[in-house]
């Protein structure tokens, strides 16, 4: 592999508009190997739009997105091969077994026969779901369905893992478990993670936090740095300061000054 870049994923000045509304207005960020980056933003901040650009569902109006050295616009197939995604909306075939769902994904990623079965079994075991592999997805709890989706996202051994509000609808226990699992993937396998959420507590343990608001990066740094620079005593307060109202310093609609 020629993936010898410092950053697994880089976004430089990404922009995307829907009509006259700027969903993303010059967003830049980078994720290195083994790094857990939390993308924190209120609803409508542009997180989902950014994820759509990162996963090639849309093409940015401007800027560059590179994954392991592959430009998502020019070489989408190469770039997509290195990304694992857990979507906000569940994307499982409810009537198929856990294993069949993962095998489907494995084959989409070009894994055949024995390889696919080996990878699927390994990822299910890593999620503690080995004994549920023959169950229909419909019979699984919400927490376990998410675990299945995480296992699926890892089947093709991606370098970058994109988690798009993955804890939505989960109970606190499942939420914490999922977060732990993903932190574990960073540490054990060097996967770079972009974890989007509007829940501040999920960003507490992140290596870095990127605060997105109204299509722009409002702040970036370790949780401690954000707290310090905002002059508050908690990440939650800092986040509130950065995203509240659109007042102080958060001037909007300042188009064309990049």
């Amino acid at each position: 592999m020629t993936d010898t870049h410092d950053a697994l994923l880089t976004v430089v000045d990404a922009a995307k508009s829907y009509g006259s509304r700027k969903a993303l207005d010059g967003v830049s960020l980078a994720i290195s190997e083994g790094e857990f980056v939390a993308l924190l933003g209120p609803n409508g901040a542009g997180k989902s739009t950014l994820f759509q650009l990162l996963s090639g569902l849309f093409v940015a109006d401007g800027g560059d997105i590179t994954i392991c050295g592959h430009d998502i616009r020019r070489a989408p197939v190469m770039a997509l091969a290195r990304i694992g995604i857990v979507f906000q909306q569940a994307t499982l075939d409810l009537d198929l077994s856990v294993e069949r769902n993962l095998m489907f994904h494995a084959r989409l990623h070009g894994l055949g026969g024995a390889d696919a079965r080996r990878r699927v079994a390994a990822e299910l075991a890593a999620q503690g779901l080995a004994d549920r592999r023959r169950d229909r997805v419909r019979d699984l709890s919400g927490g376990n369905r998410r675990k299945v989706e995480l296992a699926r996202a890892m089947v093709h051994e991606p370098r970058v893992l994109l988690m798009d509000e993955a804890t939505v609808g989960l109970d606190p226990g499942s939420r914490a478990a999922l977060l732990d699992q993903v932190h574990g993937l960073c540490a054990a396998r060097g996967v770079g993670v972009l974890w989007a959420s509007h829940l501040v507590d999920e960003a507490e343990g992140a290596d870095r936090v990127v605060v997105l608001h109204r299509g722009r990066v409002r702040a970036e740094g370790t949780p401690a740095e954000l707290v310090a620079s905002a002059g508050t005593d908690s990440l939650a307060r800092a986040f509130a300061e950065l995203t509240e109202g659109g007042g102080r310093g958060a001037s909007d609609n300042s188009d064309g000054n990049r």
Partner: peptide, 14 residues
Amino acid sequence: EMGMMRLLLTAPVP
């Protein structure tokens, strides 16, 4: 509508 299309469209396939 079910989101499955995203799974297909984010596969590394033209």
